[in-house]
Design a protein around this nucleic acid. Structure first.
Lengths: 333, 333
DNA sequence: TTGTACGCGTTATCAT
DNA sequence: ATGATAACGCGTACAA
């Protein structure tokens, strides 16, 4: 592999000049041509490792997801990678498996690898362990979850409004007893979705009860179990509001087992549209998260922070969800 | 950040000794203790960038998938990442978006980044562009598709046998007219699945017709279109053999639209089990690919090649599929 | 525009 | 056998 020295020798200038040329600084016209020629004929390429060693810039962005095993990350990562590569960055990806210890370890690895920025789908919702590890060595962008008291910029879906409007839609169709099938509430995303639900009830002067919110975790097993509990409840619910697609899977299984028909026996609304949900017998009314946008915006934010370190404005980018009204809510007025 | 020099100074030995200690070479006992102490009290960490610069080893493995937007890669990547990290490697991931030009560009980037190995889900099936770019600079592992005349080791599902046995199952249930809903045939995976189908028909002395194989691409739209064509065909098929989950999605839509009941009106078997397929009304008989195993085996192979460069045995690892017999094939005997 | 110190861990060479 | 010293890798940045 030819080095910058070879290029300098071949083109009769110093390495500094070649370096300047490569990095877009002004160089004497005839030198420019000579260097260009030398680079081409030697087929010289900048050794990224050497450059990184010197500059501590790797053009690599570290990403921590909670799991790969989810449609959500699939879409987000797809767009993120595309956007990053278009801008000359690579993506180095880890899965925390929803484990704080893993997250910690991964952050350490990434710092040690000198990633230029870190994009995290945080596991740790409450007090951020992220800050205590990363300090200010590297810009951090949070995605999907907001961490309390954190100063990092954050890209999230507009959960409150989406939740509000889809619940409002149910209310307008006469539903007053809506059970929420939810994951753990300490996640900001969950909380916001529940908040939207509560606000809609408030605004329509309907009573809400904490026991209407069935809390599990974001797995299909949990969705299955919670549905059993909803159905066994003394209160008769006319509708279910499911807060994620994984939960929905379990809900669908449970309903199928009990031969409960949507929307005749029970109305149903879920979060997380994907093509897969259309396998259900009825087209389910569903909130489509802006997954692709989340990916792109997080990537943009990361690059922006790399370019412009001082602008550490802890701003929140909210991406709008789309409510897809379909056939799973019965008008019971 | 403390450097190896600081550690050497603090422990009263030379940098070479510290380096030896770090890299597991034998060091005098008392020096060992002193170095260990210095490392801990200074909180010294090896600068990976400096080490990589010198050794050209990055402990990073480059992965090229065709897309993130698929359940298949989701599972594969999940396991791959876990296994790699457990072994001290990072995963840098790109999506070729099924585009040869992208693949080429990505390979270039990875070489330039000095990845220690490359794991590719190849786009280019026929003549490999991979060899002409990578040469022998870095070990390469192919996953999911075999490239003709390629010397790279390869990790694939045992498509032929899986296909054979599930088709055999259909035949034993009396089906002689089975339409195949397939993606592009130039992919080795597709070809093998079709081969299994053909062999089963041969072994049972049943006639096969090329026109029974409906070729599209691996998208739900294609599945939808192909199903229309199958149904419009003059030949009356009693069963459908769908070669991927994405195709299946489209197939399911088309059948739902036409109100065709599984398995009473038509029997159905698909490739690619995932929990999501259970949203279908009937439990579909399906081939479960060993996705997780593919991920792990590819990771293992890559690490093995890194450790042991000369062993360039172009071997093929075949991972067994599981046939999940469920309720979507009617016995018509 | 250029000479050169620099970053930092590794390794070859030489010394003990 | 261990350890010390210095060269090395390669692009960058600063002073000249």
């Amino acid at each position: 592999m030819p080095t910058i020295k070879d290029v300098a020798k071949a083109s009769g200038v110093s390495v500094a000049t070649v370096s300047n040329y490569i990095n877009g600084k002004s160089v004497r016209k005839n030198n420019e041509a000579a260097i260009e020629y030398a680079i081409n004929s030697l087929n010289y390429k900048v050794d990224m490792l050497a450059r990184s060693f010197r500059t501590k810039q790797t053009f690599t962005i570290g990403v921590v997801v909670n799991t790969f095993y989810s449609l959500f990350y699939m879409e987000v990562l797809h767009e993120m990678e595309k956007h990053l590569r278009k801008n000359g960055y690579c993506m180095i990806v880890f899965s925390s498996d929803n484990d704080c210890e893993n997250e910690k370890q991964i952050l350490d690895i990434m710092l040690n690898k000198y990633v230029d920025a870190i994009i995290v789908f945080p596991v740790s919702y409450e007090k951020s362990q992220i800050e205590s590890i990363v300090h200010d060595e590297v810009p951090v962008v949070l995605v999907d979850h907001i961490i309390k008291n954190s100063n990092y910029p954050c890209v999230v879906a507009d959960n409150i409004n989406a939740s509000y409007s889809v619940v409002e839609y149910m209310i307008k169709n006469g539903h007053k007893n809506i059970a929420v099938v939810s994951g753990h509430r300490d996640a900001s995303t969950t909380n916001e979705r529940i908040l939207g639900y509560l606000r809609a009830f408030e605004d329509y002067h309907l009573p809400v009860d904490d026991s209407d919110i069935f809390i599990g975790d974001y797995t299909s097993e949990s969705g299955y179990d919670l549905t059993q509990r909803v159905l066994a409840s003394p209160k008769k619910y006319t509708a279910l509001f499911v807060l994620s697609f994984d939960l929905f899977l379990g809900v669908a299984m449970a309903l199928k087992e009990k031969n409960i028909k949507i929307p005749d026996d029970l109305s149903l609304v879920s979060f997380d549209y994907s093509e897969y949900i259309d396998l259900s017998e009825k087209m389910v009314t569903v909130v489509k998260q802006p997954n692709k946008l989340l990916g792109v915006e997080a990537a943009k934010k990361a690059i922006e922070l790399i370019m412009n370190r001082h602008e550490s404005s802890s701003n929140i980018v909210r991406c709008k969800c789309e409510v897809m009204i379909r056939d799973s809510v019965k008008n019971i007025l």
